[in-house]
């Protein structure tokens, strides 16, 4: 795990994986993917980072406590459901907004926010577990 090659190449892999995870998460509504898979990919990236440079390094790179990220995910997932209160419809009724940005139309919706919440929960929880185990001393 401590090889020079791995340590050098790891940040690159991690960066690519993180970008890929976001891509997978966002395309999930129409193609294979989604918050669960994206979150797992991102968590694997954090595990790799932790293995290459140590858990402390990975935590510093993350800057926020991973469990706090998970909490934030649950929070925005719940919040996305609450938004339907403003339209007078039952909890978690989806709302769609289409943003016109020049030539393209970007669809935004509460299910997307929800999926991002799922992404954060899975990413945060599993990174937290993986990093905690990596940082653990032997018995």
């Amino acid at each position: 795990m401590n090889s020079l090659i791995f340590r050098t190449i790891a940040p690159l892999i991690v960066a690519v994986m993180l970008v890929f995870s976001i891509y997978v998460c966002l395309r999930g509504h129409n193609e294979p993917g989604g918050g669960f898979i994206g979150g797992l990919i991102a968590a694997s990236a954090m595990a790799i980072l932790g293995m290459s440079g140590g858990a402390g390094e990975a935590r510093r790179a993350l800057r926020i406590d991973p469990l706090a990220i998970a909490g934030f995910g649950v929070f925005i997932a719940g919040l996305s459901g609450l938004l339907s209160l403003f339209t007078g419809t039952p909890f978690m009724t989806s709302i769609w907004v289409y943003l016109e940005l020049g030539q393209t139309t970007v669809p935004l919706s509460t299910p997307m926010v929800f999926d991002i919440g799922v992404y954060f929960v899975v990413f945060g929880t599993i990174s937290a577990v993986a990093l905690a185990l990596e940082g653990e001393e032997g018995p």
Binding site: G34, F36, L40, V122, T125, I126, V129, L133, P139
Partner: peptide, 24 residues
Amino acid sequence: ILTAIVIGFAMFSFLLVLAFRAYQ
């Protein structure tokens, strides 16, 4: 199944750590 896999994994990691702690 999709959620079951993820929950199963969370459960697995919890049990693993529990076993680890018990062992320690």
